[in-house]
Design a protein around this nucleic acid. Structure first.
Lengths: 341, 341
DNA sequence: CTGTTAGCGCTTTCAA
DNA sequence: TTGAAAGCGCTAACAG
């Protein structure tokens, strides 16, 4: 005998509804799913009963019978991240008018955790998964894609049932640096992200390339290692100042580090943008309201989330899909200004 | 005949594993769940086969058989909210070492949407739900609680299988106002949230009470209506300034509005805290890095999420539970200072 | 148009 | 210890 249902009251099931309405379960199912024509009188009777019992069909049972769960796994790094949050909203919005719903899990930038979360998603038999960057190797992704459609952001990769959306970090960083250069700055400090993070690497390259293009000699003492977090941005500035290096502008590889840099500067009574120009990368929601409003490179994170969701739906439907890389955009606000010396 | 499985390759099922390992499905199940003793040789054989096939039991099927899904629904308002994000992380962390996983859905501060999401959670047969505030009525919650355990934040309510965690907004606002009063401010503007939002109402009351306690006459022209968003904070300041009202401090009913207020002040070259003291409410992660770092009332959102998760687990287990209201705390940073005239 | 029937992949008596 | 068998709540041929 099966386990007793966990609910205290007797479960209202499709079968109950059928019995009460005087029809067969199939008929109820057909009405629920619009799978076939049903006579008006039966339909009315059934709909009435459903309402009377406040019946909600068991999605688990349906999934089991249909072989699909109507669930899209979304592997993010931190559910509370100000950056990925926008992408999650994009996914949510794109899925809102479909029968699919997202299942969010967090990897915490930890390979083991990501793998465990992927196992969870597999165990839940999600119909597809969207991976918002992360540490899984290309090989692993390709492997996963054998079992279900995958859309991954933050890298370039293609395989059967595997699609990627990537943004041109290199170009983004290059245009940010160029902006500073055009304002007359040549002593531009760069606060970089983790050295093994692809985005960080590309942005550093973009910065270097722009300098080179402008004929400005690279200054290793102006490149500071940090971790994409506010605290790292602060420390980088402290370190820079302590080193006595000469600089008139700071390019932080993401907005969070720019916030930290901003605070460190404030502590030393260094004004932005009067004394130092500051530029970030990402355009977090907050950057519009930072002091002063931050010049930065806008990433269309919301769109990325939305596009990824649309694409995974297509892959699930067995269609082909591809995603045009959404363009990065320099947003000039008030934290940068022309150098005057 | 049932629908074909959605996967392209033949599904590896528990039955397959059993066959390959030369045992019965029950035995595999028992090994998977530790439900009963199994001889070592069979166990080894089965574990080997599981590894060989990379088998992951179908959680849907298990749920159906067991009558519980090991899933906790979490109804939040905006998945990307900087405020609730911390609570989501709290929930996630608390659930991390349990067999349960969270299913996040967003209500968008819209009653209809919230109701639809609750139906979704019901359809997915979640074992319990955590509701992070929202517009559902107390009546509705009590009704839902008849079908499954519920923990709700942001209000006080108790019923069978229904628990609430609330924070003392009134006291929090009172202490924030008192802080300003102690610094010598008496002309304190208050930017309030939506008039139908319980938190907003309580915070306004706390502000008024503190003034009254100090014998400061209420000044209706100093109370500005806004919407808990940055833009609202900006407009409130513009309006206040346009009215020509006299004030030396601003208390925004949440940090987001404080950010907006800060920017509006900056635009007019009004310094914080030199000219105007500014205080917020919530202590968003960003407030440490705003300019200047924002004095605010810290809400232990992470803890609230964690406590809610622990409590729902207890309710699901049929135990009784209650949650001690986590204390609010005034965090004095650099946006407030003594009035000098 | 509608009911009967046979599963979906798992757990859990029950009997051995 | 172990296996056989029934059933969780739903969908989908199939026959009528």
């Amino acid at each position: 005998m099966p386990a007793a249902a966990a609910l205290l009251e007797p479960n209202v099931t499709l079968e109950l509804i059928a019995r009460e309405a005087g029809v067969s379960p199939s008929t109820v199912s057909r009405i629920l799913n619009g799978t076939a024509k049903v006579s008006d009188d039966k339909r009315l009777a059934v709909e009435g009963t459903i309402a009377r019992f406040n019946f909600e069909p068991n999605l688990m049972a349906r999934s089991l019978a249909m072989g699909q769960t109507r669930t899209i796994g979304v592997l993010t790094q931190f559910i509370e991240s100000p950056f990925y949050g926008e992408a999650l909203r994009g996914v949510e919005d794109a899925l809102a008018d479909t029968p699919y719903s997202p299942l969010f899990v967090s990897g915490h930038w930890n390979l083991k955790t990501e793998e465990a979360r992927m196992r969870l998603l597999q165990a839940r038999r999600v119909d597809g998964v969207i991976i918002l960057t992360g540490r899984l190797s290309d090989q692993q992704l390709i492997k996963y894609a054998e079992r279900m459609p995958i859309v991954v952001t933050g890298r370039q990769l293609a395989a059967p049932r595997l699609l990627s959306v990537d943004v041109d970090d290199f170009e983004g960083a290059r245009s940010a640096t160029r902006h500073l250069l055009e304002l007359g700055h040549t002593r531009i400090a760069f606060i970089t992200g983790p050295h093994d993070h692809p985005d960080a690497i590309e942005r550093l390259r973009g910065y270097q390339q722009a300098l080179q293009d402008a004929g400005v000699a690279p200054a290793p003492e102006l490149v500071l290692q940090a971790d994409f977090m506010e605290g790292g941005g602060m420390q980088a500035i402290d370190q820079l100042l302590a080193s006595g290096a000469d600089f008139s502008a700071v390019f932080a590889a993401n907005d969070q580090m720019a916030y930290g840099a901003r605070l460190a500067l404030y502590r030393r009574n260094i004004r932005v943008p009067d004394d130092i120009s500051l530029i970030g990368f990402d355009d977090l929601p907050n950057s519009t309201y930072s002091m002063p409003p931050l010049t930065t490179v806008r990433q269309p994170v919301y769109d990325i989330g939305r596009l990824a969701a649309v694409a995974i739906l297509k892959l699930i439907a067995g269609e082909t899909a591809d995603i045009a890389a959404p363009p990065l955009e320099l947003v000039v606000r008030e934290s940068t200004r022309r150098l005057r010396r």
